[in-house]
Amino acid sequence: MLELLDLRRTFGATVALDGLTMRVPRGQVFGFVGVNGAGKTTAMRIVLGVLAPDSGQVRWEGSPVDAQVRARIGYMPEERGLYPKMRVRDHLVYLARLHGASTATAAASAERWMAALGVAERAGDRVEALSLGNQQRVQLAAALVHDPEVLVLDEPFSGLDPVGVDVLASVLRQRVDDGAALVFSSHQLELVERLCDAVGIIRAGRLVASGTVEELRGHGRQRRLEVEVEGTDRWAAELAGVRVVDRAGAALVLDLADGTRPDDVLAAALRAGRLVRFTPVQPSLAELFREAVLA
């Protein structure tokens, strides 16, 4: 389990992290979402020791993260970075060696990951000669080449085409199923919703919500209905515990306050006229996210 415990960090007058705590067990894909400047990148850099926290601690399997542990973390920084003039294979071998792999292990691992990410035929080319999409794949290979147990990836999907997204998603899933812990940040919330076992929403340096997407939906929030009654759209305006938040064609989108039961709404709709449609709606992660960060 990777644990971030009460991390605090300021930059001058700016508070980047304000007591961030989160936990990612092995075998879990943890999506880390938040608006720009919420503290995601700062948190990840602290996990890697690239940045020191003012206070708080990062632990892996119960003990503080040190150089030995960091050698088993795979990191993809928000700002991509490789030596532009180095050859792809040499680069991956070099990074694996820096993480403590032997020459033979590093070479074998570089070949495996180049093949897995579809850049094997570019092994002898300089990084700068590759397209941006392929450079991105090499960057991922660089994060994975030492077979890390913990993956910390900052926006790993940005810049990838849909095929690249699928390749990366399956590669990461495989790593996690093999027992790795994965934290990644993304602004592509549909992707996060699709891939993640758990999601953390960070706002102003604190975790404001976390859990599975299912838990976030049910967690003390209004349920949502789409209801259409023929000939009227005014029937719900006076209804207690119900708020009209939107219209979807002729239907009203209703948020139900805590304690309001869907069958009360159904009864009211039936009284108002002929019922055309009555559909419970699952809010998307994007909607949950907006609520969480705007609340």
């Binding site: 890697l48 020791g49 050698a71 920084p77 970075g81 030596y83 820096l98 660089a142």
Partner: peptide
């Protein structure tokens, strides 16, 4: 920016 990848280890 490769320095950040390097300094992680």
């Amino acid at each position: 920016r490769v320095v950040e990848v390097l300094l992680a280890t």
